[in-house]
Nucleic acid binder design. Structure first.
Lengths: 336, 336
DNA sequence: GTCTGGCACTCCACATGTTCGAGTGCCAAT
DNA sequence: ATTGGCACTCGAACATGTGGAGTGCCAGAC
């Protein structure tokens, strides 16, 4: 009996602490949960749990709070995921359906996730690894400036300005455009670099063509995957004195999207599986009291991640359910 | 002498309060500034200033702090703008030069502004009112979905997905693309709607063409002007218990860009002139203790606004100088 | 061996003084 | 118009006391 009850005690502590944000004592625990033993017994269990490093007390003779390790155990023991309410499911479906645009869709998704969980949500732009070039457009926007626009069949549009180094006429530009489209059309993004080498243009345009090749290669490589959208930062303020002083560094990290991206990509997350990083499990110092709940989403040929960030003291079952559900819906919509 | 000194007293109060974030008393005032009178005299001036509503005391027998009206007077009396240091000027020039892209440029600008002022900075996307359509590209990304991409000669690229309602073949799409480009090429954005009406397509494609027309018109109308980039939200946390409890609503407002946009556009701001809204002068409740320092930037045919947001207790001279300087530099770069 | 009731102990949160100093308002004198 | 002086107010900081929640531990019951 012993071990089973201890697990229950840990779970109860986590749940109560998440709900009340106050250290939870042995007596309250017996009352609020259906534990059919006395508080003294619970106390004994508590010292055991404390020795295992699963819970800790902020000061002598206070209640216990879960440690990172305690949350970890709690999360690992959660096998049956709490299902969302019908109302929530309907909300998800309603909000995400009929997106105008990829941007629009991600924007809505991230807002939805933030409002469902009352936490900060981030969504990575999906990358279509197998997508192909559909069209390359060149526009002269100033005497020496060309705008290069790359359009893929997955609906991505990327642009960049390139310095042409010489004035170009309408015909020159048309010539370049045709030359590049000739070799690039239907080329997979990961083969754009090679294709660019085979482009043939008159000698006078060789320098310009080289500059364009470089930019196009770059555009094809760095398509979006390294961008993300975020919502719900206002929820940070609401989290009481929980992160309290740490809110500053966190906001900084959020602006430095690079950090977030690294964090996200470092998390194993096949689609369908929700993975969790708790507090100091995160390799970043400013996330010491922040948890990340992430999962993959998208179709086979365009995978990316989405995540929810919040205090370690977070409602993991609900958050994980929301993350999983939203990822599922978005994936369905994405495969159109 | 009387009136002149009172103005000096007000200025001193503002400066000290901004520096220390503590109510400033009569005695400290005489010491820290070269006022050649006794503290009692200052006290008399203070009651006068208080009766005019320029300063207030948080509680009886505490120092005084400026009211919104006090800040307003302070700002209005600032005629010679504090020049930036040479180092700051160099930093501005270095960071903003050689942008890769419009997005890139705005991104750098807003970060620069945030780090110069240690406040939150926002920059509105510039709208080229006189810009023209350069190219319209249609891409079929799924059986019933068309991606419409609008490229203007000012380097803007806007895209949107449209439901074609019927499957389209390569030739259909090419036909539509040519038809639209025929009428749209070199059309000014504000005349796109009219031009779309004149497009001629075979009867079978009429419905699709109508749908595309609608989307294109929409794209042309809402080009970017209604988007903005932001940086420096982490500086909010650093502002002590200044906005303190109000940080939540503020963050919310920042995410609701609509509110910010309204606020920005409601501010008079010809390029070169810096305008300031202080605390409750802002028509939005959540900005009750926030000030906005804004100005216009850009060239004749593409104007937009940039601004810095911070607590009413902000260093106005420095902030205004930074805003003005950055706007100037950006305008220069923009005109290439 | 496991659980239980009881008891002494610890420590925080809160309330209640008490003091100290900065700041004010006012007035009579200059 | 300015000044010095004085009584007064109020908040911040510190000390003190009390109540309650929580703990650890032990001896006894099952």
């Amino acid at each position: 009996m012993n071990d089973g009850r201890r697990a229950r005690v840990l779970r109860a502590i986590v749940e109560d602490y998440v709900a009340t944000n106050e250290p939870v004592g042995s007596k309250a625990l017996v009352e609020r949960h259906g534990l059919e033993v006395s508080s003294a017994t619970i106390r004994n269990d508590m010292v055991a749990l404390e020795q295992e490093g699963l819970i800790a007390q902020p000061h002598t003779s206070a209640g216990r709070i879960p440690t990172d390790k305690g949350y970890r155990m709690f999360v690992d023991r959660l096998d049956e995921v709490k299902p969302l309410s019908a109302a929530e499911k309907r909300a998800i479906a309603r909000i995400i359906e009929r997106p105008v645009d990829i941007d629009d869709m991600l924007d809505r998704t991230v807002r939805l996730l933030a409002s469902l969980t009352h936490q900060v949500a981030v969504v990575q732009y999906p990358m279509a690894t197998t997508s192909q070039v559909r069209h390359l457009e060149l526009v002269d926007i100033a005497p020496h400036r060309l705008l290069v626009v790359l359009i893929t069949d997955s609906g991505q549009v990327e642009q960049r300005i390139v310095d042409s180094g010489m004035p170009l006429g309408e015909t020159d530009i048309a010539l370049l455009r045709d030359a590049f489209n000739e070799v690039l059309h239907r080329t997979r993004l990961d083969r754009v670099a090679a294709a660019c080498d085979t482009v043939s243009v008159p000698p006078g345009l060789r320098d310009v063509a080289a500059a364009i090749s470089e930019v196009v290669t770059d555009l094809a490589r760095s398509t979006r995957q390294d961008r993300l959208v975020m919502a719900g930062t206002a929820n940070l303020a609401r989290s009481g004195r929980d992160l309290g002083a740490h809110i500053g560094p966190l906001l900084e990290a959020f602006e430095e999207q690079v950090v977030l991206l690294k964090l996200l990509t470092s998390m194993v997350a096949e689609t369908g599986r929700v993975s969790v990083r708790i507090g100091r499990e995160n390799p970043v110092e400013s996330f010491a009291s922040t948890s990340v709940v992430a999962t993959g989403y998208g179709t086979d040929d365009s995978e990316a991640k989405l995540a929810v960030l919040g205090p370690t003291r977070m409602d993991y079952p609900t958050t994980m359910a929301a993350v999983r559900a939203v990822a599922k819906y978005v994936s369905v919509i994405l495969s159109e």
